[in-house]
Simulated scan of single mutants.
Amino acid sequence: MKLRPLEETDLEFIHELANDYSLMSYWFEEPYNSLEKLKESYRNNNSSESARRFVIVNENDMVGIVDLDYIDFIHRNCEIMLIVKPEFSGNGFAKFAFKEAVKYAFEVLNMHKVYLYVDTENEKAVRIYEKQGFKNEGVLREHFYAKGKYKDAAFMSILKSEWTENE
């Protein structure tokens, strides 16, 4: 299993994930994105310094994606987002990808803090993040709209000093 940078040839896979309502609701995103719009966005933003996108690969299978978004080189923080295709869930891919992306954020990008938003009802994800050393900084009440209702989102983060202690 490994992470590799997103390539234009991966966009059909990303399109499949981005249009899966059950998956995109975890990112509090609307599952609506045409393949052409995705390609255009890729071409326009591929050289952007504000994001790093990786594909999770196991042998010949694309398993999921992990993004470091909203990279802020002044305040030295970024958001991490992860999706694993349901058929690959429970095999350690999320844990691996999450750990590698956080390591990349701290060791390569020299971030001070990595943060995320998670649905407070998604207990499985919250446990994964806590095991990785993320701390709950608070709950944003009814902050996102997904699956037909407003959802509370926990704001969780890890500081580089905390991550270093756990390594």
Rank of each mutant, 00 (worst) to 15 (best):
K37R: 14
F13T: 05
F28Q: 09
W27H: 03
E16P: 00
N33W: 03
I14K: 12
E16A: 09
E30W: 00
F13P: 09
H15W: 13
I14L: 15
L17I: 15
L11F: 09
K37L: 03
L11H: 07
H15L: 02
S25E: 08
F28C: 08
E40R: 14
E36V: 10
S22T: 10
H15N: 14
L23T: 03
Y32G: 13
W27A: 01
E30G: 00
D20A: 08
I14M: 14
N19L: 04
L35I: 05
L23Q: 13
D20H: 07
S25P: 00
S25H: 04
S34R: 13
S25Q: 08
W27C: 00
L11P: 06
L38D: 06
K39D: 02
A18Y: 09
M24S: 06
L11N: 09
L11I: 07
D20E: 11
M24F: 09
K39S: 04
A18R: 15
E29M: 02
L17V: 15
I14D: 06
N19Y: 04
P31S: 06
E16D: 14
W27E: 04
Y26A: 04
Y21L: 09
W27T: 02
S34E: 12
L35N: 00
L35P: 00
E12K: 12
A18Q: 06
L17N: 10
E29G: 01
L11D: 05
E40A: 14
N19V: 03
E29H: 01
F13Q: 06
K39P: 05
E16V: 05
E40M: 13
E30S: 03
A18T: 01
P31Y: 03
Y21I: 12
N33G: 01
E12H: 08
P31L: 01
E16I: 08
